[in-house]
Design a protein around this nucleic acid. Sequence first.
DNA 1: TTAAATTATGCAACCGATTGCAATATTTCT
DNA 2: AGAAATATTGCAATCGGTTGCATAATTTAA
Lengths: 345, 345
Amino acid sequence: MKSNKEATIYDIANALKISASTVSRGLKDHPHVRKEIKRKILLKAREMGYQQNKFASNLRQKRTNTIGVILPRLDSYFMSTVVSGMEKVANLAGYNLIISQSQESVKKEASNILTMFNSRVDGLLISLSYDTKNMDHINVLFEKSIPIVFFDRVCEHSDCKSIVIDNYKAGYEITSHLISQGCKRIAHLAGSLFRNVYSDRYEGYKQALADNGIENDNKLLYISDLTNDAGIEITRKILSLKQKPDGVFAANDTSAVALICEFKKAGVRIPEDIAVAGFNNDPVSRVVVPNLTTIDYPGREMGEIAASTLINQLNGRQTAKINSIVLGHELIIRQSTMKRRETDN
Amino acid sequence: MKSNKEATIYDIANALKISASTVSRGLKDHPHVRKEIKRKILLKAREMGYQQNKFASNLRQKRTNTIGVILPRLDSYFMSTVVSGMEKVANLAGYNLIISQSQESVKKEASNILTMFNSRVDGLLISLSYDTKNMDHINVLFEKSIPIVFFDRVCEHSDCKSIVIDNYKAGYEITSHLISQGCKRIAHLAGSLFRNVYSDRYEGYKQALADNGIENDNKLLYISDLTNDAGIEITRKILSLKQKPDGVFAANDTSAVALICEFKKAGVRIPEDIAVAGFNNDPVSRVVVPNLTTIDYPGREMGEIAASTLINQLNGRQTAKINSIVLGHELIIRQSTMKRRETDN
DNA sequence: TTAAATTATGCAACCGATTGCAATATTTCT
DNA sequence: AGAAATATTGCAATCGGTTGCATAATTTAA
């Protein structure tokens, strides 16, 4: 029962002895078509198994109902949550999502942007790669006025919106918390300081130290890609320090968990010897022993809001000139930093 | 510097005083165009910022270089790994990926398939939803001979390929392992038995019991969606059993981990009182205490192979009539099932 | 009953790239 | 040099839906 011929509006028009224009209008409920004819068109369309050819339509309308998504990696809990949220919103609004990964490389990011551009996405949602340093490769889109919404790893740009959390504040809060638990030497595991998410957390960390009269020691700053392996590697470095830290603030949970596991192997007690805090509230943070103190990071919401912001813009429903939307976060205190049991409930 | 006018091959043709056909051919290195002209065309194209309009091209060629992906949920470690693998392969082969989630509902699955169909994807990669019971909604694609490759949650269909692991064998192995550790009453947490992944694991479990002379007790079978919450709920049920199991084989790590955490809260010792095994080798399985025995499940590979299988088919590079590709898996034995320390190294 | 207003329909151009076929230009061979 | 073969180019139709404008049908107003 295989047919290679697709039914077109012309076929419907012929079968009904009316014009293709009327069929076209009827199918999309245009007011200039009689109810009766509309019904007939719909019926015949169903009967013939008609499906709209989006290419013809897109070609004519210069619109694709497709949104491009570029992100560093898809395979983290956080990102998959974000994308899940985006997909939901986009789907509901009748948009398709084209997704691609930059694999943390500008080069691939640029080539992905070009592909998206060729595919004529209506708009782009993007979270920058680890080593993106300037925005030249995004200019193709700017020049064609294709709206862009940044999420999470954003970049200051007057023409586009960003969806973020207050990383500075979160970094400040988590560091203050460590200090309140009695930590005096706090190490920090950061990602690329070219990315707002990491530099802001770092700044918050430094400010909290300063506000509490603790000197910032550059030897306690570890920059890496924050993978599990990086965590293991850094643990080794920390253990070889003459003057060991009594607290660690890692910029994500993956590395924090790696740290905890390695520390435990080395006989370091968490949190008694070293308190450890992470960032993201990955499922793993609730499972590791001791449970990991972290920042709850609203991934799904971020995805949903990024998508709906972009879609609103595409539909001209531009509510004022929003530059950025800052979502709430929450410090989740768990065992891994509770040095002072008596002060907690 | 914003221009809304896209450069077309006609613009290039005019600028060069040649025909659009020649430009079209020149751009894609057709042999019927002089080298010299080709060079000029390429140069002018770059100069004018020309980008091919894929819609016009697709419309004419009836090909989109787009692959649709439909999966239950994106926000699990396993699935994001799969998609990551697919994206990589597809991208390399010049294909775009359109991704959508069925949210475990047939209804949404059907509507997603329709959307994909309208977008004229060249092929489809699909993992079935929890409650899909028949394949009627996929027939639209079959009728148009659009190739489909199933992955993980597959369905027997003579016309399409499936990428899977041997769930039966894995279920058998993990159950046998539990038995070898001395378990006599083993509970099983399954997902929808309409899905091969869960029914096969269940069958493997039953066979292992049978082969070891253990009676299969239906009261020890728990069917759920295998979420964290489901795990908590089932823990309660298990704890209220008169005759408690001494081992549990959960069909995924999420529920297994929930089980372990709840059991621990209730004072049940793992593995001494109850041994627990999961499935998937999620990162969390290495972190939970005790570490979770599980089956390593090659997600990224599954994604890569599914994508390349489909792409080969699209390009007519059909290597024989493959019905299904079975990937290897590995039983990973960790603390959560090691009742007999002396027998292990 | 007829003019004016309103509602439906169709014509034909258009979106931009592709491609079979015919036409022209260039080489090669006697 | 002239014919034959080969290499280049362009014409024009095509893919399928959309839409401005003109025309036809129907309703309303006078």
